[in-house]
Design a protein around this nucleic acid. Sequence first.
RNA 1: GCCCGCGUGGUGGAAUGGUAGACACAGGAGACUUAAAAUCUCCAGGCCGAAAGGCCGUGCCGGUUCGAGUCCGGCCGCGGGCACCA
Length: 891
Amino acid sequence: MSRYSPAEIEKTWQEKWQEADIFRARRDEARPKYYVLEMFPYPSGRIHMGHVRNYTMGDVVARYKIATGHNVLHPMGWDAFGMPAENAAMASGGHPKDWTYANIATMRDQMKPLGLSIDWSREFATCDPEYYGQQQALFLDFLEKGLVYRKNAVVNWDPVDMTVLANEQVIDGKGWRSGAEVERRELTQWFFRISDFSEELLEALDGLDDWPAKVRTMQENWIGKSRGLQFAFGLNDGPDGHDRVEVYTTRPDTLMGASFIGISPDHPLARQLEREREDVAAFCAEARKGGTTAEAIEKAEKLGFDTGLTCRHPFDTAWELPVYIANFILMDYGTGAIFGCPGHDQRDHDFARKYSLPIIDTFLPLDAEHDIQAAPYVPLKSERVRYTRLVAGEVAGEEEQTGEAGVEAAIEFCEKNGVGQGVTKFRLRDWGLSRQRYWGCPIPVVHCDACGVVPEKKENLPVQLPYDEGGTPIDFSIPGNPLDRHPTWRDCACPACGAPARRETDTMDTFVDSSWYYARFTAPHATTPTDMAEAEYWMNVDQYIGGIEHAILHLLYSRFFARAMRICGHLPEKAIEPFDALFTQGMVTHEIYQTRDAKGRPVYHLPEEVEKVTFEDKSVYVLKSALTERGWENGDSNIREAIAKSFVSFPHYGVDVIPSAKMSKSKKNVVDPSTIIAEYGADTARWFVLSDSPPERDVEWTASGAEAAHRHLSRVWRIASEIAQSPVEAAPEADEALLREMHKTIDEVTKGVDSFGFNAAIARLYAFTNTLAKSQAGQAAKTTAARTLAQLMSPMTPHLAEDVWAMLGGAGLVATAPWPKADPAMLIDDTVILPIQINGKRRGELSLPADMDKSEVEKAALAHEAVQKALNGGQPKKVIVVPGRIVNVVV
RNA sequence: GCCCGCGUGGUGGAAUGGUAGACACAGGAGACUUAAAAUCUCCAGGCCGAAAGGCCGUGCCGGUUCGAGUCCGGCCGCGGGCACCA
């Protein structure tokens, strides 16, 4: 073999790794463990470049940790339940299970050629009964501990597909698939008690130092802690059982500016009035219309309905406030009722103007005029204001303080006077997990007329999804949940009394599946959800890597699950924060190639259908088919030039290019990893997705970039084989210089790999390759340098590294060779080039011994020609010498 | 609206407060070759200059410092997250 041939070497080395079984993880107390995990994929059909980038980063970490003496766990599995499988079944008549397992097989086959250091013996899919059966066991444990419960909840209901829709699946008030008007329905659903953990989940964020600050902030906002006052307004002449309206406010310092009470259409009082009065019923029906999506909310008009009822102000019983039902008040935040303070809230101000309500200020700006009738005054809580009507009795006065202080003073005063109490609230709601779908983990309970909701017995787990229905495959073309109409599966005996009963036909949200898989990987074949000895050894995940899109839900749910599992004895205490370090990687993007059809609609083209044509110094992208029509493949260079010229001169023939867009099938800007591997090899794909851009940022896939990566790997291979074949005598000076560079490279690459600076590490490896190529050193030094290069490259391009390593007589596998260490003595040069600045501007440089005394350096600098000239015989005002870095002379 | 990020050549991007633009892409010149491919060498922030060299330069304005892409304040622009949240 005389040239770099990835197809051969990648296969060879993958086989050797497998023979040596070096990626199988076993407990070994003698070595420090390291658990690296990438967010497992959904088996959608084929892997994409985003997967390649994600798993390559994880592989770099894993292989580096192996080389640095760690016992590494690096597993892979499949997040395999979910709607796409069911949709595919509905569309094409197949079965979700067949579709899913076929996709897994395809994707595994695509993934293995990447040469990832994965322990495949731990692989599982969340749709394996062995996995979801343990998930059902967890559910039963949670149920016993009160961590999961049933309650009524309002959901988006698609009446055609007969299922609950997530908010994201409601588009303009219609179901995303069926197009049917979405209804708000009240269903009995299962909920995880995640909100009980609000405070804890919030506070523990502080300890997650190795998580991106951004993710922590997003979770913080999501949990949404607020401090306020909860109290009641007395209600005049309310219907039976309603003599007060409970409200919650974060601005109790605006209580003296109240001008109306607003309640949600779903508030018990509104419900009561609705039953009694037709006009209220009509308004409430109108107010409930419209979806719960962001857009729907944005567009919705603020509507209010004056009930005619009034409330008494707690500090002035003669002060009466009208009670409105308003469509913008949410039943599930606070108490479902508010008091409106138009002076200090834009929405309340709009509402007051619309319904002619009084506008009263309770504080004003310190030293600016403000017309409260014209606009509300809404300062930040941290701003100092001048209180005009603070609820603090006799000290209300003209006191200046911040809003925060005002709020606390108001709470204190109210509490002292028996008007409510200070409370802390969270935005975080309990997690509804019921889904009216087939392809999910069945909720293991039974509904019995006599016993009610009865948990399935653990020995009967898993409650398996039925594949067929009395021998005939389940029909997914009928809307709704097939489990609901599957008599042999649905009808069962009550585990408690044995009487005929019905299985719960709802399945679990697929976020449940991914909330504990990291724990299962520590003991994937255990007959309980986890094996505590294994969990104790392997947990926590030392490095978790995935997309920012999971910053909130998946990570928050996992944090909750770890806590819940700890309570049930399935995880050790230390694992309640399961991910020690988190890294969120950027996307792989690609240009979109777009033309327009006769009607002006966009038409998209695959990258391979497009070619860049250059004439003189101008370029344009054109369709290859258009080139073929004109005779592009004709060998005559004059013809090619004429065609190129015509396209460049008339760019409207060309293809519009939209840069850096997320890869998507519909825009056709996708590059299939398998195609790239076939053409260049896995190492090229791996090298490319790591180079150029910092890992947290998006990287644009370009054909020229891929070629450059491949060119470089070929070059490394060629340089190594030349070294192996040409015995050259030692050359002391060149040897020394090369080895010094080598140690600097070890140092910098190690730092880069350690801190997710993969692009910087790769840049350094390029530079070192250039140095090696040009070096006049002898064979021995070059061999050492090239072997080290192979080691440093091995986390990124493991196959090439093995080949180079073997070619140069390296012992064993480079994958298990100890990571090279930089010799500190070799990092310091004997002489350094010191820039000389005059007044902070670079004016020259001096080559001086590195260990030269500061005063000597100063002397040398002052003797410098440019400095002499600037001094013009005078004395410098100041000389700053930073050893090894710079000299600055101030004149 | 609130809360985060980020603005550096034609492009992706480097740079513990210490030579801005490493490394790479695209581009240009050349060597090798009958030719092409491959490979190798060199050039390349802008302006002025034949050159030596000089001036300007990290979104804009100001500040701290011997010295600022980096720190501080204020603007402008872009991106992201949250949000009828009381």
